[in-house]
């Protein structure tokens, strides 16, 4: 029996500490040990992207990483983006534009799309399709997913510019 490893992770802002065998995959840590069931197990062969999470600011397929490799790192799952009462703009856009049917790929799709929009806040349709190439959807034909991501980008950019206007306004008022 191989020795268990002492693993420490931060998941959606909460520190977690536990002992696990080296072969424990991160997706199982999240779902079965920590009861964070947003990331899904789809293919378990790193093709489908249903298990996509963000680790230290980068999209990663959590079925193709051992929990021990993530020790000391900061992980964000779909649970860390928005809440039922205050949806993330991507969640709102997926709802508005029918970006999901069965919903199985959606947590991975949105977690990946959130990183994509951070890396490129003004993507073209081609950028979006290239950026979500590792996330498969068997329902929608991607059309409405792409539409949702582009709509979320527009909303987020409008919010950013109105909040920077607001900051500008405050500065003007302060100057006056």
């Amino acid at each position: 029996m191989a020795d268990k490893m002492h693993i420490k992770l931060t998941v959606n802002g909460t520190e977690e500490e536990f002992l696990a065998e080296p072969r424990e995959l991160l997706i199982y840590t999240l779902r079965e040990r920590l009861n964070i069931t947003g990331p899904h197990i789809g293919c378990e062969t790193s093709h489908c992207g249903a298990c996509t999470v963000t680790i230290d600011g980068k999209s990663v397929k959590s079925c193709t990483m051992f929990a021990v490799q993530a020790s000391g790192k900061d992980i964000t799952t779909i649970e860390g983006l928005g809440t039922p009462d205050a949806l993330h703009p991507l969640q709102e856009a997926f709802k508005e534009h029918h970006g999901l049917q069965c919903g199985y790929c959606t947590p991975g799709m949105i977690t990946r799309a959130a990183k994509l929009l951070e890396e490129n806040p003004n993507p073209t349709e081609e950028d979006v399709r290239f950026g979500i190439a590792g996330n498969l959807c068997r329902c929608t034909g991607y059309q409405n997913i792409v539409k949702s991501i582009l709509a979320a980008a527009a909303t987020m950019n409008a919010d950013a510019s109105s909040s920077s206007d607001a900051i500008g306004q405050t500065k003007v008022e302060a100057a006056e």
């Binding site: 790193s46 992207g49 999209s59 990663v60 193709t64 990946r112 990183k115 190439a133 590792g134």
Partner: peptide, 9 residues
């Protein structure tokens, strides 16, 4: 190579 998540690892 692969896709964005694969390229990160």
């Amino acid at each position: 190579i692969g896709d964005p998540a694969v390229r990160n690892r």
